[in-house]
Write a protein that binds this DNA or RNA. Structure first.
Length: 199
DNA sequence: AGGAAGATCTACT
DNA sequence: GTAGATCTTCCTA
């Protein structure tokens, strides 16, 4: 059984790049009907506000990106190219930002994930931001869930404590990136999205 | 109405 | 590993 140990708001009220690094190795839990689907986060990207041309929030506060401007610590879900992408709002007090969850290592509910993704290849189930939302049946119905609450349909919990080394790279697929490397991943983990994988 | 968007899949070299 | 088609929302005009 799980020790459902979520993080406080404080964890998410920091620079998005720091939060993105610290989210690696944590466990994402999806409760679907009575089933549990879960995975370990192995790849993330940090996004900022008006200073970040790749951010949803770049052009200012709109209805569709409003969550990024509100308090840190909520799931933020939106669609790109027919894929739902899962983020967590994360930023310093009174700032703007979010962390995109780009890849998971499947842990529980793998048979359901295979069905959702229509593939038998475990490595292909959740190794991309659009893949993992499909595998875990995550849509914008779950938008706005508070990550500090337990017993929700979506949760981020501490999970197993383990050591690993972290790699970084420019963000993937963005038209205009910032100079810093804002993509983070667990080195040598085979569930990291394939392209641009280095370590 | 038209097009962009933080991606994925397939079909090739 | 790269190129091109295509998926679905939501934005701007």
């Amino acid at each position: 059984m799980h020790t459902v140990e979520v993080f406080s708001k404080k964890f998410y009220k920091r620079d998005p790049a720091l939060v993105a690094r610290d989210m690696l190795g944590k466990t994402l839990i999806r409760k679907l009907d009575s089933r549990i689907l879960s995975g370990k986060i192995v790849e993330t990207e940090a996004y900022y506000g008006r200073s970040d041309p790749a951010s949803r929030a770049y052009k200012g506060r709109k209805r569709f990106n409003e969550l990024m401007f509100l308090d840190a610590g909520r799931f933020f879900i939106y669609m790109v190219h027919a894929n739902w992408l899962l983020n967590i709002v994360a930023h310093m007090e009174a700032s703007v930002g979010a962390v995109l969850i780009r890849a998971l290592e499947p842990l529980e509910g793998i048979e359901v994930m295979k069905k959702n993704r229509d593939t038998k290849d475990k490595r292909d189930l959740t190794s991309g931001p659009g893949k993992l939302t499909k595998a875990l049946a995550i849509t914008n119905e779950l938008n706005g869930i508070d990550v500090t609450r337990t017993n929700e349909q979506l949760m981020l919990v501490r999970g197993e404590i383990e050591s690993f080394s972290i790699g970084s790279s420019p963000r993937i697929g963005v038209k205009a990136d910032l100079p810093q490397e804002l993509r983070f991943y667990i080195k040598r983990n085979i569930f990291v999205s394939r392209y641009l994988r280095t370590g």
